[in-house]
Design a protein around this nucleic acid. Structure first.
Lengths: 145, 145
DNA sequence: TTTAAATAGGATAAAATTGTCCTTTATTAA
DNA sequence: TTAATAAAGGACAATTTTATCCTATTTAAA
């Protein structure tokens, strides 16, 4: 709706990893893809991006997999994940695709989008991985279907 | 940022057509594409969609081109244009791409998106082509750059 | 030390979106 | 009636996004 497919998978994966990390479990790409209903190899690529951006932690070899430390669940918010995968166009870009669009030379929708974009930005910045994972843990939300 | 490229061109084209129709001028695809800075042939395809959806009116032959009647500028809002080109996924779809996501079985972002989506929906429904075109006419907004 | 399990990463393929070209159809005006 | 003009529409091409496959690297445990 608003994010790329890659970004949707990325968020879902991060939330699932966080949830399992709360139980002290490290999870493999195969398990993640199965649990969030995403293509395995593509999910692996996205996890590489999350790892490079210090959003999740990866460990190679047997007993390896992905995990997120408890303190990182507080540090990492949705905005960081979105930025790592889709870039910051969602904040910066013009709603009508103009290269130059600002209060001085606004596109016809500029003012209309100011509030919406600002709400979105605030929401993404203020929503931590911990909050999302505990919602899942409590059984309030879902990652599949 | 939020709409497909096709949809961005579509909105810009519709606003430009409306602006010119206020002056009683019919405009060709070539002129439109030049004024909104979009690829001509691709813009022609998008205008076909807008025409089929009764958003703009097309006239073939010499002196032909695209136009919008004054009363249609009030009737047509952004929501209709977006729906004609991108479909209604922006309203209906889940922020995390789940097929089934609702208050009963929400994804972790469901509640967070309710307000944002509702604001967006309201904005798109309440913004008429007339409003956008007159903003342009008065020189407050721009369609290029 | 060897084997197996796991991520990293490169190369490639498939699908969707964006963009172009050319022919057909409608219509106006000379 | 003919010529010219403009949209309609079909076929195709390029680009981007999504997805797969295979090999390399790391590491734990037997």
């Amino acid at each position: 709706m608003m994010f790329s497919k890659a970004c949707e998978y990325g968020i879902r994966a991060a939330v699932y990893i966080a949830l399992q990390s709360l139980d002290g479990r490290r999870v493999s790409v195969t398990e993640i893809a199965g649990e969030i209903d995403s293509p395995i190899a593509f999910t692996a690529k996205i996890l590489q991006q999350l790892t490079r951006n210090n959003i999740v932690n990866s460990v190679k070899g047997p007993t390896g997999g992905f995990e997120i430390e408890r303190k990182d669940m507080d540090r990492v918010n949705l905005s960081m994940i979105v930025k790592a995968i889709d870039g910051d166009n969602i904040y910066v870009g013009c709603g009508l695709g103009l290269k130059e669009c600002n209060a001085d030379k606004p596109c016809p929708l500029h003012d209309k989008f100011v509030d919406i974009r600002s709400n979105l930005r605030t929401m993404l910045k203020s929503t931590s991985l911990y909050e999302l994972a505990t919602g899942l843990e409590v059984g309030l939300t879902y990652l599949k279907r």
